[in-house]
Simulated assay, not measured.
Amino acid sequence: MIPRIMQAKPEDYLTADGTNLDPFKLWDLMLTNEKPGGHGERSVAVGTIDMAIWDAVAKIEEKPLYKLLSERYGDGHPDDKVFVYAAGGYYQPGKDDTMLQKELKSYLDLGYSVVKMKIGNSLEEDQRRIEAALKVVPSGQHLAVDANGRLDLPTAIKYADMLAPYDLFWYEEPGDTLDFQLQNTLSRYYSQTMATGENLFSMQDARNLIRYGGMRPDKDYLQFDCALSYGLVEYMKTLKMLKENGWSSRRCIPHGGHQMSLNIAAGLKLGGNESYPGIFEPFGGFADDEPIEDGYVKLPQVPGIGFETKAKLMKVLRDVAAS
């Protein structure tokens, strides 16, 4: 992808007035002679370069990316803060219910209002773990569960029956992301909120989920991650498709917990963004000096995506650049 960009002429990637990079032209350059399909093999490569391009575009304009996105592609009034939830609750050797409770409470103490834990090992074990979690979170609406695609349909239905009385924030990715029939059928058994889509890597895959997955625009959430899915250029195509199918951008809460999605969420008015407190540092997380308050985080007022507001990340990037 990089050689295709470097070998291009300036008129192939600059805006019409020559004052900035054109992300859409650059996206087309990266995908020169690429045929459709096979989205998992190159979507992250394009998404990574696309992120760098948008950072540069916003810095050339001397604006935070979320403000640039709102001015160019939104309503000109970006959100000044974004809902974020804390993802964790992993299975680990020797991790008992008390340790799970301590972990989830630590996220609440950081300022998050919604926390997420993993399920899918066994129904009986997970019911016990969920009930332990509910002793430290305010209510079921403050707890989401994520099966990471582990369940077949009969098991997913059993989990749905078990989960329903708890009125959870959502039931995430019960089956394989591409098993649209499972997701569609499950929606007839589980009337509360579900979420999926983090492992779909293109607008076409997202469209198939909307067409065939039984997702409900009045209650379910979509978790497409621009960094995994050809970047923001593709994400805007996905948002356009969703609007054409009666979905609000507010039903999108991207997977990943990174600053690019945070800027998109604020600039294009998504429903929020995932967060992994302390797990994927220094790449995950948000600006060092922007704390989580009542489940929301503000964006730094610096040009670009805001990488420079994370000291540990900048040390890594500078070390790489110097090597």
Rank of each mutant, 00 (worst) to 15 (best):
I49Y: 00
C252R: 00
V145G: 03
F201H: 13
L100Y: 06
P277M: 10
Q181L: 13
G285H: 01
T98D: 14
H258W: 12
L168Q: 07
H77G: 05
A156Q: 10
G267E: 06
A45R: 06
H255W: 09
Y107Q: 00
G284L: 06
L313W: 04
P3S: 12
P93G: 03
G149N: 13
Y112C: 05
Q259H: 09
I279V: 15
G304P: 07
P3Y: 02
L100I: 08
G214L: 08
Q301N: 15
G89E: 02
G76P: 07
T196G: 08
S187H: 13
D17L: 07
V82L: 05
D50L: 07
P254F: 11
D220G: 01
F24D: 15
I210F: 08
A322H: 13
P64A: 11
L110N: 00
R211G: 00
E62H: 14
V44L: 15
G278P: 06
Y85E: 00
V114K: 00
D176G: 12
W54A: 00
Q259G: 06
I292L: 06
T15Q: 01
H77A: 14
L200C: 05
A195L: 04
K116M: 05
G175K: 00
S323G: 15
A195G: 07
E11I: 11
D75Y: 06
L242T: 08
Y13C: 11
P23Y: 01
R188V: 05
R188I: 01
L222T: 00
D50Y: 06
R129Q: 01
N121S: 13
Q223L: 14
N20M: 07
K95L: 08
S323R: 13
Q259M: 15
D96L: 12
E173M: 04
Y221D: 04
V137H: 05
M162A: 15
G120V: 06
S113L: 02
T48C: 14
R318S: 15
E290T: 11
K310R: 15
Y235E: 12
W170M: 11
D80R: 10
L209Y: 03
G18R: 09
P36K: 11
G213M: 02
A206W: 12
Y189G: 08
V84K: 10
D50R: 06
G271D: 02
G94D: 03
V302I: 12
F307R: 03
Y159L: 09
E62L: 03
L69I: 10
D319N: 14
R188F: 14
E308N: 09
C226V: 11
G37Q: 08
